[in-house]
Amino acid sequence: MDETGKELVLALYDYQEKSPREVTMKKGDILTLLNSTNKDWWKVEVNDRQGFVPAAYVKKL
């Protein structure tokens, strides 16, 4: 969790967005987890953008 109590995830792999609903991340990025109710796609925030990334590409910290 960060200082505001939000849950964080670590990008395990690079991911290039394939639609406007997704976000690009690089391996090693720390992202804010917004929603993990879907087992396949998690909603995150990175670089002031919100979108989805494959759940298998990130790990909760």
Score class of each variant (00 low, 15 high):
residue 10 L to C: 09
residue 61 L to V: 11
residue 61 L to R: 03
residue 27 K to L: 05
residue 26 K to W: 10
residue 29 D to A: 07
residue 20 P to C: 09
residue 52 F to C: 12
residue 1 M to V: 14
residue 1 M to P: 13
residue 52 F to G: 01
residue 48 D to L: 10
residue 23 V to L: 14
residue 8 L to A: 06
residue 32 T to K: 12
residue 55 A to W: 01
residue 33 L to A: 02
residue 30 I to D: 01
residue 15 Y to M: 01
residue 20 P to G: 08
residue 31 L to G: 12
residue 31 L to F: 06
residue 15 Y to V: 01
residue 38 N to C: 10
residue 45 E to G: 08
residue 29 D to S: 07
residue 4 T to G: 14
residue 1 M to Y: 13
residue 27 K to I: 06
residue 10 L to W: 07
residue 54 P to T: 01
residue 39 K to I: 09
residue 9 V to K: 00
residue 22 E to I: 04
residue 46 V to F: 15
residue 59 K to F: 08
residue 10 L to I: 15
residue 10 L to K: 07
residue 45 E to W: 07
residue 36 S to T: 09
residue 27 K to W: 03
residue 25 M to L: 07
residue 58 V to P: 02
residue 39 K to C: 10
residue 60 K to T: 07
residue 33 L to E: 00
residue 25 M to P: 01
residue 55 A to T: 05
residue 16 Q to M: 13
residue 8 L to S: 07
residue 36 S to V: 06
residue 7 E to Q: 14
residue 48 D to R: 09
residue 23 V to R: 02
residue 30 I to W: 05
residue 34 L to N: 02
residue 4 T to S: 14
residue 41 W to V: 02
residue 19 S to Y: 06
residue 4 T to I: 13
residue 42 W to R: 01
residue 52 F to P: 00
residue 45 E to A: 11
residue 24 T to V: 03
residue 21 R to V: 11
residue 6 K to Y: 14
residue 38 N to D: 15
residue 14 D to C: 05
residue 4 T to L: 13
residue 47 N to F: 12
residue 60 K to M: 11
residue 57 Y to N: 06
residue 31 L to D: 00
residue 37 T to C: 14
residue 59 K to P: 02
residue 54 P to N: 02
residue 43 K to T: 07
residue 43 K to A: 08
residue 5 G to P: 15
residue 44 V to F: 01
residue 2 D to Q: 14
residue 58 V to A: 03
residue 2 D to K: 12
residue 40 D to Q: 10
residue 9 V to I: 07
residue 9 V to T: 02
residue 15 Y to W: 10
residue 56 A to Y: 09
residue 30 I to H: 05
residue 22 E to P: 05
residue 44 V to A: 01
residue 25 M to A: 02
residue 42 W to P: 00
residue 27 K to E: 07
residue 21 R to F: 13
residue 13 Y to P: 00
residue 20 P to K: 10
residue 36 S to R: 07
residue 30 I to S: 03
residue 59 K to Y: 09
residue 44 V to P: 00
residue 4 T to P: 13
residue 25 M to N: 00
residue 15 Y to H: 04
residue 56 A to S: 13
residue 9 V to G: 12
residue 1 M to Q: 14
residue 20 P to N: 09
residue 29 D to Y: 05
residue 6 K to N: 10
residue 17 E to G: 15
residue 27 K to C: 08
residue 47 N to Y: 13
residue 37 T to Q: 12
residue 10 L to Q: 10
residue 43 K to L: 15
residue 19 S to D: 10
residue 21 R to I: 12
residue 52 F to S: 03
residue 11 A to W: 02
residue 47 N to H: 13
residue 56 A to G: 11
residue 20 P to A: 11
residue 5 G to R: 14
residue 15 Y to K: 01
residue 32 T to S: 08
residue 33 L to P: 00
residue 58 V to F: 05
residue 33 L to W: 01
residue 9 V to L: 11
residue 30 I to N: 02
residue 49 R to H: 07
residue 31 L to C: 10
residue 6 K to Q: 10
residue 18 K to R: 13
residue 12 L to N: 04
residue 38 N to E: 11
residue 33 L to V: 06
residue 3 E to H: 14
residue 31 L to R: 01
residue 18 K to F: 05
residue 14 D to Q: 03
residue 39 K to P: 15
residue 36 S to Y: 07
residue 4 T to C: 15
residue 49 R to P: 00
residue 57 Y to H: 08
residue 31 L to I: 08
residue 38 N to Y: 08
residue 53 V to Q: 00
residue 37 T to F: 09
residue 1 M to F: 13
residue 50 Q to K: 11
residue 23 V to D: 00
residue 28 G to V: 00
residue 30 I to Q: 05
residue 45 E to V: 09
residue 13 Y to L: 10
residue 29 D to W: 12
residue 21 R to S: 13
residue 21 R to M: 14
residue 50 Q to S: 11
residue 18 K to G: 08
residue 29 D to N: 06
residue 53 V to F: 01
residue 17 E to I: 06
residue 9 V to A: 10
residue 59 K to L: 10
residue 60 K to E: 07
residue 56 A to C: 15
residue 9 V to P: 00
residue 15 Y to G: 00
residue 27 K to N: 05
residue 24 T to R: 05
residue 9 V to D: 00
residue 24 T to H: 04
residue 54 P to I: 02
residue 60 K to F: 08
residue 45 E to C: 12
residue 22 E to H: 06
residue 48 D to C: 12
residue 33 L to H: 01
residue 21 R to Q: 12
residue 42 W to V: 07
residue 31 L to T: 01
residue 6 K to H: 12
residue 55 A to Y: 02
residue 18 K to I: 07
residue 28 G to L: 02
residue 24 T to D: 04
residue 41 W to E: 04
residue 56 A to I: 09
residue 24 T to A: 06
residue 6 K to C: 14
residue 36 S to K: 07
residue 18 K to D: 06
residue 14 D to A: 06
residue 29 D to R: 02
residue 3 E to Y: 10
residue 4 T to D: 13
residue 5 G to M: 13
residue 17 E to A: 15
residue 57 Y to S: 12
residue 37 T to M: 10
residue 17 E to Y: 04
residue 17 E to N: 07
residue 16 Q to G: 07
residue 21 R to N: 14
residue 43 K to G: 05
residue 16 Q to L: 12
residue 14 D to L: 02
residue 2 D to S: 13
residue 25 M to G: 00
residue 41 W to Q: 02
residue 24 T to P: 05
residue 1 M to I: 12
residue 49 R to S: 06
residue 24 T to W: 04
residue 29 D to K: 03
residue 39 K to R: 11
residue 4 T to H: 13
residue 46 V to C: 11
residue 9 V to M: 05
residue 24 T to C: 06
residue 18 K to S: 10
residue 28 G to A: 03
residue 39 K to N: 10
residue 4 T to Q: 12
residue 53 V to I: 08
residue 1 M to L: 12
residue 5 G to K: 14
residue 16 Q to K: 13
residue 37 T to I: 09
residue 25 M to K: 00
residue 1 M to C: 15
residue 26 K to Y: 10
residue 7 E to F: 10
residue 52 F to E: 03
residue 57 Y to M: 13
residue 50 Q to A: 11
residue 47 N to G: 15
residue 1 M to G: 14
residue 41 W to C: 06
residue 61 L to I: 14
residue 25 M to D: 00
residue 12 L to M: 09
residue 19 S to R: 09
residue 30 I to C: 06
residue 24 T to Q: 04
residue 55 A to C: 06
residue 43 K to N: 06
residue 54 P to G: 01
residue 52 F to N: 04
residue 8 L to H: 09
residue 24 T to Y: 03
residue 38 N to V: 05
residue 40 D to E: 10
residue 50 Q to D: 06
residue 51 G to Q: 01
residue 21 R to W: 15
residue 40 D to S: 10
residue 29 D to P: 00
residue 33 L to R: 01
residue 2 D to G: 14
residue 28 G to P: 00
residue 43 K to C: 14
residue 23 V to I: 14
residue 32 T to M: 11
residue 43 K to Y: 15
residue 56 A to M: 12
residue 11 A to F: 01
residue 48 D to Y: 08
residue 31 L to Y: 08
residue 28 G to H: 05
residue 61 L to A: 05
residue 24 T to K: 04
residue 2 D to W: 14
residue 39 K to G: 09
residue 57 Y to E: 03
residue 45 E to I: 09
residue 55 A to R: 11
residue 5 G to E: 13
residue 26 K to F: 10
residue 6 K to G: 09
residue 50 Q to T: 11
residue 21 R to H: 13
residue 16 Q to V: 14
residue 52 F to R: 03
residue 42 W to M: 03
residue 4 T to W: 13
